[in-house]
Simulated assay, not measured.
Amino acid sequence: MTQAESYDMIVVGAGISGLSLANHIARSGKKVLVVDAANKIGGCLNTCYKDDFWVEMGAHTFYATYTNLIDLIQKNGLEQDILAREKVGMKVFTDKHEKIMKGVNKFELMRSVPNLFFTKRDGKTVKEYFGKIVGPKNYDKVFTRMFSAVIVQNADNFSAEYFLKRRKTKSKKHPKSFILKKGMSSFMEALAAHQNIKVQLHTKINQLAKNSDGFKVLAESGEIYQSKDIALAVSPKIASKLIKGLNTDLSDVLAAYPIQSIETRTVVLPKEKLNFDPVSFIIPLQGSCFSMVTRDVMTHEKMRGFAFHFEENQISKDEQEKFMKDLLLVDSLGAETVETKHQLPLIKTGHSKSLSKIKLLAEETGIYITGNYFNGLSLEDCVERSKQEFERYAENCK
């Protein structure tokens, strides 16, 4: 084993939650080490680059309501890279591309929508809440697929309180929805570039331990890292394993979170190969593909790009490729696909109670913890949670 340099904070996990927390702490003057087992930073923000073209394989849009995230964009020098998304429509897919409301019974919808003013989200699943608002038949036929496309997992049992959350803040200076000139990953690079941050990839952490100087972090490679404080910004399953030696109660709560595994396949094709108009995304109304998200919101002279989000291990690679060809309305792809995998938590009803327990146990243990299983799955939810943990950290440092 070798003894490594000591830090004010070690953040385990280099996704948006970990890097936004690290950036806040670094800008306060502290020395931060960010470690991740992957070969690149970003987590679910994953841009596939091909020459001068790119397409997102994970999260793909920022919104004017993401004020905490916009603050980080500005403070890290990317304001000039903000681009409004071009206005292109969306489609559903049966055996062809169809209008987004195809299959929706308008009479049932009109009859059910008034329930919006009388139905509360508290304690309800997405299916229970929205089924009353759009009508049960409409929900089962169309909206279950639409909502599942939003969170890239089956939405039926997702907590309605944490789905499509209403936000009280909104920037009036930014487009309603926007992207960055060089893709989402450029935001991750900007967060990580602060002079007080060191990022170390290919580093799997096996164990955390407390000592007189704070925390000792043991890597699978044998390296030992020392820090005054520690923050976990990884999936709840990984966090549970790492925290077990520090607090078994916290470990057990984290281990209880169900996880949805997603496999994404991305392909970039010449414009002339495709015979359908630009579209922001297409939602299949059947099968194991949650959605096809496109780069058509930022026009390129020669290329178009597409990311297909599949539930992992549901169909074979060949079946996935056939589905991709069907959605693209082509006989063959004629190009290699790039593949990646993501894991997303399923936030169930009763989440707020679990959340309170996690926060209390984390404070008792003396650690910081963030991720997409706290305030919600959106990018703003992740950044908001990390800001809250930074504020707690800053208060503790006084």
Rank of each mutant, 00 (worst) to 15 (best):
Ala26Cys: 13
Glu79Gln: 11
Phe107Val: 13
Gly135Arg: 01
Asn46Ser: 13
Ala38Trp: 06
Gln74Thr: 12
Pro114Ser: 05
Leu19Trp: 01
Trp54Met: 03
Lys102Pro: 00
Asn115Lys: 12
Ile133Glu: 02
Asn115Asp: 06
Lys137Pro: 00
Lys102Thr: 15
Glu79Ser: 14
Ile82Asn: 03
Thr65Trp: 00
Met90Cys: 14
Leu109Gln: 01
Gly43Lys: 03
Ser112Ile: 04
Lys50Val: 10
Ser20Met: 01
Val35Phe: 01
Lys30His: 14
Asn68Gln: 14
Asp52His: 12
Val55His: 03
Asn68Leu: 12
Asn138Val: 08
Asp51Val: 00
Met110Tyr: 14
Asn138Phe: 03
Ile70Asn: 05
Val32Pro: 05
Met90Pro: 03
Arg85Tyr: 06
Asn68Met: 09
Met101Phe: 14
Phe107Arg: 05
Asp51Gln: 10
Phe118Lys: 09
Glu98Asp: 13
Gly89Thr: 12
Phe93Tyr: 15
Leu72Asn: 00
Lys87Ala: 13
His60Phe: 04
Lys96Pro: 01
Ile16Glu: 00
Lys50Ala: 08
Phe62Asn: 08
Asp51His: 11
Val35Thr: 12
Asp140Cys: 08
Met110Cys: 13
Lys50Asp: 10
Ser28Glu: 09
Lys75Asn: 14
Pro136Met: 12
Gly123Arg: 04
Glu56Phe: 05
Phe117Ser: 10
Asp81Arg: 00
Val92Glu: 07
Asn115Ser: 12
Gly58Asn: 03
Ile82Arg: 03
Gly18Tyr: 00
Glu128His: 01
Asn76Thr: 15
Leu33Arg: 02
Ile41Ser: 03
Glu86Ala: 09
Lys50Asn: 10
Asn46Arg: 10
Glu98His: 10
Arg27Ile: 02
Val32His: 00
Ile133Gln: 09
Lys137Trp: 15
Asn115Cys: 09
Lys127Phe: 08
Thr119Gly: 03
Leu45Ala: 09
His24Asp: 05
Asn23Ala: 08
Cys44Leu: 13
Gly58Thr: 05
Ser20Asn: 06
Ile16Arg: 02
Ala59Pro: 15
Lys120Asn: 11
Phe53Asp: 01
Glu56Asp: 13
Thr65Met: 07
Phe93Ser: 01
Phe93Leu: 07
Gly89Cys: 07
Val34Gly: 02
Asp36Phe: 01
Arg121Pro: 08
Ala84Val: 13
Pro136Thr: 11
Arg121Glu: 15
Leu33Gln: 00
Glu98Phe: 11
Leu109Trp: 11
Val88Thr: 11
Asp36Ser: 13
Gly18Lys: 04
Leu19Lys: 00
Arg111Gln: 10
Tyr49Trp: 11
Ala64Arg: 10
Leu72Met: 15
Asp51Gly: 04
Glu56His: 07
Gly18Val: 06
Glu79Lys: 06
Met110Trp: 15
Asp95Met: 08
Val104Cys: 09
Asp140Lys: 15
Asn46Tyr: 09
Asp140Glu: 14
Gln80His: 13
His60Val: 04
Val88Ala: 06
Gly43Val: 09
Val134Cys: 02
